[in-house]
């Protein structure tokens, strides 16, 4: 479970996150939905410990990434936005190195590697250097890296960007399987249909705040709209100008 409590963050005097709070329950897929510039990436980076919040607190499981970054990172798997691979390494080398960094070794390592290879259909790519991989192949490798040590929490920043249908389906399949295993999944996106399709729960972000939370159906009901898109527009840009503090639902 990830808890975000009252975090604020500004860059060079421009506030990006304003007193942001939400919970991400275990065994659920939570989407962070927001327009570009809503603060999604900053929020995720604060959770990963890459950024420090100006105020407020984050808990990843029982670890605050600001105070115990190592503790938090051990429980995290992260797939960043548009991230790069190491082009001179093969997939196997790449995954093995990251698995080892996470403390895996011996048979546990071999098993973990075999598992992600299977799970993400990497067999054909396994001993190829990652240079020249397609977006979908890169996504698979990145996801494998984030999963190889079986983190309790998985964070994905715009994971569907640039993916073809097959890749999206694989991603969805994987996330659903992880959810079944009880993994806490938080991903950001600005693409409504995907959010609607993938997530159990949506957090609508606008101007550094969560302006709505719930299942797509709940949001629609709350805004009186028929689609998630309409609900999002209503929540993010419109009618509810006052910043409502939305309690995360208990897991």
């Amino acid at each position: 479970m990830i808890r975000v409590e009252n975090i604020s963050k500004s860059f060079a005097g421009t506030p990006v996150l304003r007193n942001l709070s939400f919970d991400v329950p275990d065994g659920r897929i939570t989407a962070l939905l927001g327009a570009n510039g809503a603060g999604k990436t900053s929020c995720l980076r604060i959770i990963c410990g890459l950024l420090k919040a100006d105020s407020g607190r984050v808990l990843v499981g029982d670890a605050d990434p600001a105070l115990d970054p190592m503790g938090a990172r051990r429980q995290l798997g992260v797939v960043g936005d548009r991230e790069g691979l190491y082009e001179r390494l093969t997939v196997r080398e790449y995954l093995e190195i990251f698995a080892r960094m996470q403390g895996l070794g011996g048979t546990a390592l071999a098993e973990a590697l075999a598992a992600v290879r299977e799970e993400l259909e990497l067999a054909a790519l396994w001993d190829r250097r990652t240079k020249g991989f397609s977006q979908g192949e890169r996504m698979k490798v990145s996801l494998a890296r984030a999963l190889v040590h079986r983190p309790q929490h998985l964070i994905l920043d715009e994971p569907t960007r640039g993916l073809d249908v097959l890749a999206v389906r694989l991603l969805r399949k994987t996330l659903l399987r992880l959810r079944a295993a009880g993994t806490t999944i938080l991903f950001s996106s600005h693409v409504m249909p995907e959010v609607a399709e993938l997530s159990d729960r949506v957090l609508v972000m606008a101007a550094g705040q969560v302006v709505g939370a719930g299942t797509p159906e709940q949001l629609a009901a709350e805004t009186g709209c028929s689609t998630l898109e309409d609900s999002f527009v209503a929540l993010a840009y419109g009618q509810r100008a006052s910043a409502a503090r939305v309690e995360g639902e208990p897991a």
Binding site: C48, G49, L50, R73, L76, G80, Y86, M101, G103
Partner: peptide, 17 residues
């Protein structure tokens, strides 16, 4: 180079000092 290739961040979220 690592920074430009955006491969630094995955490294930074590993449990390494």
């Amino acid at each position: 180079g690592e920074r430009e290739r955006l491969s630094l961040e995955p490294l930074l979220v590993q449990p390494l000092a």
